[in-house]
């Protein structure tokens, strides 16, 4: 079967977006132990803030991106203090449902401010160059490069810094790490800062690759979840591996099945993965 390099390239780009977003989600899950359905809407919010700064206020895209990331980073902490913190002692299912309520609020807030129709970032229109038969766009290259930089950065953070090591410890076994003196509340702050920033960046990349719509985050959430769970929930490298896997499979599947169903591929990968390797690709799920 000939695998079209264009599809593989598209898959890597989409995979980057999914991998980065899945990383943020899995880090949050690892420390806080619940699935945050509002994460998709954090991504959307980041994308929209960046859009507002870029297309409505007129600042260059770079500034807009930084603004989007910072807003969601701080925003995630604020939302935690306002909402999730009060439910810290409750069951993960309650937190899941609370996150659903929050997702409703954020998504409709976006609709209320920016309207339900689609938007695009304010970018110069250029013909897409071609390299070895694969058509690519500047945005796609930017997405890939940014993703790789971010993934390396988070890897370094988790492996080399005290905070990172503490995060991994708390993610593996919260009680044990507290016994060893890790301040889990401070970790929660860090994980929201990092996770929120990643969500904002993921959303912006999604908006760059496709389009901005109020439900963009929620729609993307399914492949992202598939990646998180496939990679083993709580396992950062699994989330990344899962993200690229799903991205490539999803885009490559267009060669065999109608393209409207490509999201179904993520679902199938998820179901197959859960039934055959419930602990994730690397067997390191932390639940």
């Amino acid at each position: 079967m000939v695998l079209d390099p264009q599809l593989i390239w598209n898959g890597l780009v989409v995979g980057s977006i999914i991998a980065v977003s899945a990383l943020g989600l899995t880090l949050i899950f690892g420390i806080l132990n619940f699935i945050n359905i509002a994460y998709g809407d954090y991504m959307a919010a980041g994308a929209y803030v960046a859009w507002a700064v870029n297309a409505q206020v007129g600042l260059p895209l770079g500034v807009a991106i930084v603004a989007g990331i910072l807003t969601m980073s701080v925003g995630a902490v604020v939302l935690d203090k306002l909402v999730f913190q009060h439910f810290r002692s409750r069951s993960p299912i309650t937190l899941l449902i609370v996150s659903i309520g929050l997702a409703f609020i954020i998504r409709n807030f976006i609709r209320a401010i920016w309207g339900p129709s689609g938007h695009f970032y304010d970018l110069p229109m250029e013909a897409n160059p071609s390299f070895l038969g694969v058509r690519f766009s500047v945005e796609q290259v930017a997405i890939m490069v940014t993703s790789i930089v971010l993934l390396l950065g988070v890897y370094a953070l988790l492996r080399r810094t005290r905070i990172g090591i503490a995060m991994r410890a708390a993610s593996d076994d919260r009680m044990l790490s507290r016994i060893r003196g890790v301040d889990t509340e401070k970790l929660v702050l860090y994980v929201w800062l990092i996770g929120g920033a990643i969500a904002g960046l993921g959303g912006i990349m999604l908006g760059l690759d496709a389009q901005l719509r109020p439900n963009m985050g929620f729609t993307a959430l399914i492949p992202i979840f598939a990646a998180v769970i496939l990679g083993g929930i709580g396992d950062p490298k699994g989330a990344v591996a899962g993200g690229y896997t799903i991205g490539v499979i999803q885009e490559a599947s267009v060669a065999i099945i109608p393209s409207e169903y490509k999201f179904g591929v993520g679902l199938l990968a998820l179901i197959v993965g859960l039934l055959t390797r419930p602990d994730g690709l690397f067997g390191e799920a932390t639940r």
Binding site: V98, I100, G101, F104
Partner: peptide, 13 residues
């Protein structure tokens, strides 16, 4: 329309 849905989310929480 959107404020209504936000209200539902808030009431749920």
């Amino acid at each position: 329309a959107y404020i209504r849905l936000m209200l539902v989310g808030a009431v749920l929480i």
